[in-house]
């Protein structure tokens, strides 16, 4: 293994890791927003909203994320959507993971015992008051762990924006392989950095989950 090479290129990889982190954070935020809206739509009283939510989930989950990224980045300009690669990657990934988060959030909400809603409604609380004060606080605890699984998948999924030239970890590894012909070292280096990011995020989620359990 060429450790000298690794020591020479690692600052570029750190920079790339920072891009991966930014991409992950923005994607997670966008994903949570889409997931919350998607879950609200899927649980709506109105059939139209339910249909929109269901369509969103099945279209996104039924097609490869890579194709979704390509459609937005390469196909976007054709229909007047001109985005740089970072923005296109973030939006496509966020909307993508949002579909999975929709199902996570919906599942957590539906796993709250019906008796909870009945008790609150019986006291005279409205649907929304019941959701906000009784169902969501309980669902929130239950969704931390599965959302963590979504976020783990999302971080790994950021590698999919390499083909549209976002200078993140996977793209950077590929670029250095072109000039050094050392794929083992380069992919190893990016792999280790992915692992560190995922480990730290995983610990954060464990911490949140423990705290939610105590409270």
């Amino acid at each position: 293994m060429d450790t000298e090479l690794i020591l020479r290129v690692y600052p570029f990889f750190l920079q790339a890791a920072w891009v991966t982190v930014q991409l992950s954070v923005l994607t997670a935020i966008l994903g949570l927003v889409c997931g919350a809206l998607g879950a609200a739509a899927r649980l709506s009283r109105l059939r139209l909203f339910r249909a929109i939510g269901a369509t969103y989930v099945s279209v996104i989950r039924g097609t490869p994320a890579l194709i979704q990224i390509f459609i937005l980045y390469f196909g976007g300009p054709q229909i007047g959507i001109q985005l740089d690669s970072f923005a296109a990657g973030t939006i496509a990934l966020g909307v993508n993971i949002g579909a999975y988060m929709t199902e996570t959030i919906r599942g957590a909400i539906q796993s709250v015992d019906r008796g909870q809603t009945e008790a609150a409604r019986t006291l005279g609380m409205s649907r929304w008051e019941t959701m906000r004060k009784v169902v969501l606080p309980q669902a929130a605890r239950m969704m931390i762990r599965p959302l963590g699984v979504n976020i783990n998948a999302l971080i790994k999924g950021t590698a999919l924006v390499a083909p549209i030239s976002v200078v993140e970890l996977t793209y950077t590894a590929q670029r250095f392989i072109g000039s050094t012909y050392k794929p083992f070292e380069m992919f190893l280096l990016s792999g280790v950095l992915y692992m560190i990011i995922i480990y730290v995020v995983g610990q954060g989620i464990n911490w949140l989950d423990r705290r939610a359990r105590i409270a």
Binding site: G115, E118, A119, A120, R121, T122, L123, G124, A215
Partner: peptide, 16 residues
């Protein structure tokens, strides 16, 4: 419903 109290078999207290 504010005028009609109800008590359930499984209590349905709010655990949080």
């Amino acid at each position: 419903r504010q005028n009609i109290g109800m008590v359930f078999q499984h209590f349905n207290l709010f655990p949080h």
